[in-house]
Nucleic acid binder design. Structure first.
Lengths: 253, 253
DNA sequence: CTGAAAGACTCGTCATATCGAGTAGTCAGG
DNA sequence: CCTGACTACTCGATATGACGAGTCTTTCAG
């Protein structure tokens, strides 16, 4: 295998390694040749080899570990879990706890709450005015002591202020839907806007994933009859989570 | 601004530029300083500057154009569209056509259909045996002549073979749900599994996005009463699309 | 005035080289 | 046998230098 001109060498090498992975010549958890070995194999410099491996890492096909090497990632990660479909059943507690327990792992989380003023985008999502008071809570969710999800939620104090659920995590009830039930507000629906991008350094560090890997970003808002009552930004590693949604199709009219 | 030791220089530079973008010092479509200028500013080599810019590009904050420079990307892309929520109403035609027209753009697509044998993963998703005959259709969806979405769908010929909808695009009806209505099968629900990763070279080229930017991958399956009748792999640029899901919360029992 | 050519600028690709840091295997000593 | 130190190996970060290719501005000829 050697590179031909006309297409960047690092892309050709990435193509070659990718097909070896997809066709099974390199199996999950197999070790790729070391960078110096690949330099010899393809007759290129280390920069080119590293660019090729970076391509594959961004595609989620390999992981690199300093001091050890590069390894093929399992194509269907064993950590596959679901989130969105949870709402089809009546969530009894926090969706995270349910889905994590179902996967045989121990759910845990820590958080920090504080009152603050709504920024412009948050005010927009909550249907309130910028500067209005909100309760801001940052969560770090762990499965078997490993951080797997980050979330920052905002609740308008115009709704929760002075009630028993003003402090999101002070009561015995977990989960947004049951909590709002406690003050007589039944959440009727939830909207999730899903996007993807690379992890920011803080997120990569906290989630213990290599810097630059793709994450899924969910903008989730709970509504009571078109009145937003809670909105959150959720970040999960796309290597660990698959978001699964089930949508009903109404019968033909 | 200078780098301090203890944290890689390229991350510090990325942090600095990121906060300038997020705080508004650099606005959408503003041009960042050129790579040589950033080398001077921070006193580092070009490799470091490029790594910092690559971080920001993967995060979707900037775009780079050869010969022109690096530019701040609009934080809320004007091309924001929705997909998933479409199923709440009864889709009249193809969801893509509906959502694209709603955004004031002209939907178009081309495709290639062929009969083939189901691979293992596809057979698994369709609840058939590997090797069973399926109709495979690759779509390229365009909005205003620009490719924005790729899709490869599979339908078991055990269901559609010999019917009027065997060829997905030969009839006058578009959209999976109406098509199956034609043969008396009412699709009851759809499952979408969402994940994210970097674009593969073919996808990056076809979707006309820079190589390596994150894409959203949707594994969509249509069901008639728990019987899968169509499954598809859909790829969209996360820079162009936001997937929006609306989920109903049943009343308290 | 217009259009084409030249040059300056910018990013893309790649080579060579150095040092640091994390990992793992080997081997001697307790 | 277990443990600790040494060493070889691997990836991470960074410098310097070079050439190619796309873009834009300016200049000059027609």
């Amino acid at each position: 295998m050697s590179v031909f001109s006309g297409r960047p060498a690092y892309l050709q090498i990435a193509d070659d390694l990718r097909s070896q992975i997809l066709e099974g010549a390199l199996q999950a958890d197999d070790k790729l040749p070391s960078e110096p070995a690949l330099m010899d194999d393809y007759g290129v410099s280390r920069i080119v080899v590293r660019q090729a491996l970076d391509v594959l890492r961004a595609e989620g096909l390999i992981v690199k570990q300093q001091g050890r090497g590069s390894f093929v990632r399992a194509l269907v990660p064993p950590t596959k879990r679901v989130l969105g479909h949870l709402y089809n059943e009546r969530p009894e507690g926090s969706p995270f706890a349910a889905v994590t327990s179902a996967g045989g792992q121990r759910p845990e989380w820590d958080y920090q709450s504080r009152k603050t003023a709504a920024s412009k985008v948050i005010a927009d999502r909550l249907g309130i005015a910028p500067g209005d008071p909100v309760m801001r809570t940052s969560y770090r969710f762990l499965a078997d002591d490993e951080p797997v999800m980050l979330s920052t939620s905002f609740e308008p104090l115009a709704i929760t202020g002075g009630t028993s659920i003003e402090q999101p995590e002070s009561g015995t009830v977990t989960g947004v839907v049951p909590r709002f039930d406690q003050i007589g507000l039944h959440i009727t629906h939830v909207k999730e806007d899903v996007n993807g991008r690379a992890a920011r350094p803080y997120e990569a560090e906290t989630l213990q994933v290599p810097q630059g890997v793709p994450v899924l970003v969910i903008e989730r808002t709970y509504y009571v009859e078109d009145q937003p009552v809670e909105t959150a930004d959720i970040v999960v590693s796309s290597a660990r989570y698959v978001l699964s949604y089930r949508l009903e199709i109404p019968p033909r009219t």
